[in-house]
Design a protein around this nucleic acid. Structure first.
Length: 229
DNA sequence: GACCAGGCACATC
DNA sequence: GATGTGCATGGT
């Protein structure tokens, strides 16, 4: 039988939750600290978290660049903008009308609760901030956790499509399990640390982009495959 | 030209 | 509670 895909001669390693700290160490040794999230300010991180919903990061970067060019990448500048103007600037990230509304919804919340100041938002207890973020229309669990971890510095593990893809492939959890189930598993297995959750998630994204795109098979050199693991 | 990408809300059963 | 659908652009 003919196949265009390269054969994989190494064995796929199956992980248990207790392996996760070691998985992080292996990735960190292989690739170094990732210095994440790509964003110059916490507010840029928040905007990026909304714009990347079901969207390739490359297209998000274009939208962020346009916002920056327009000096609109601060809460003060973005808040008075019309929905139409904002949507036009973020067009390249896709779903621009939906995402313009979501950014507006976040801004309304951000000013109502925290006067538009990251410093005040970061003082909020993590569990309380998470509950409040999830009440904002357009902020779901992944976006909320990205904001919590990367903008507010709270130890919440971000479960994204890459995390599910890689670790379900490695037999950790069935891919269809809920977001909460995945997060409970990771947070139970990995010590609660803002710094570790930050870089572990970054390592997962890095790994996925190198090796685990749905349509690619480059797994021979992946550090999570035996015997390199 | 088809398929995919770091979700989410909403309708329906 | 589970499943399906709309939202939209740009790269491969």
């Amino acid at each position: 039988m003919k196949s265009s895909k390269p054969s994989v001669s190494v064995k796929l390693r199956k992980f248990k939750p207790a392996d996760l700290p070691r998985v992080y160490q292996v990735l960190r040794s292989a690739y170094g600290h990732q210095q994440w999230w790509p964003g110059e300010t916490p507010y840029e991180v928040i905007v990026g978290a909304v714009l990347t919903q079901n969207t390739a990061w490359l297209n998000v970067e274009k939208a962020l660049a346009r916002l920056k060019e327009a000096d609109a990448l601060t809460p003060e500048a973005m808040r008075p903008m019309t929905r139409a103007k904002l949507a036009a600037l973020i067009r390249s990230a896709g779903y621009h009308n939906v995402k313009a509304d979501r950014l507006k919804n976040f801004l309304a919340f951000f000013y109502r609760e925290y006067k538009g100041e990251i410093r005040l938002m970061s003082k909020e207890r993590g569990s309380v901030l998470r509950r409040k973020l999830l009440e904002v229309k357009g902020i779901g669990p992944e976006t909320a956790d990205s904001i919590l971890l990367y903008a507010a510095g709270k130890p919440f593990f971000v479960i994204d499509a890459y995390t599910r893809r890689i670790f379900s492939r490695h037999g950790l959890v069935p891919n269809m399990d809920s977001y909460a189930a995945w997060q409970t598993l990771f947070q139970g297995a990995v010590p609660s640390s803002r710094a570790i959750y930050n870089d572990f998630h970054a390592q997962i994204v890095n790994l996925a982009k190198r090796h685990c795109r749905a349509s690619r098979t480059l797994c021979e050199t992946c550090p999570l495959y035996t015997p390199s693991f």
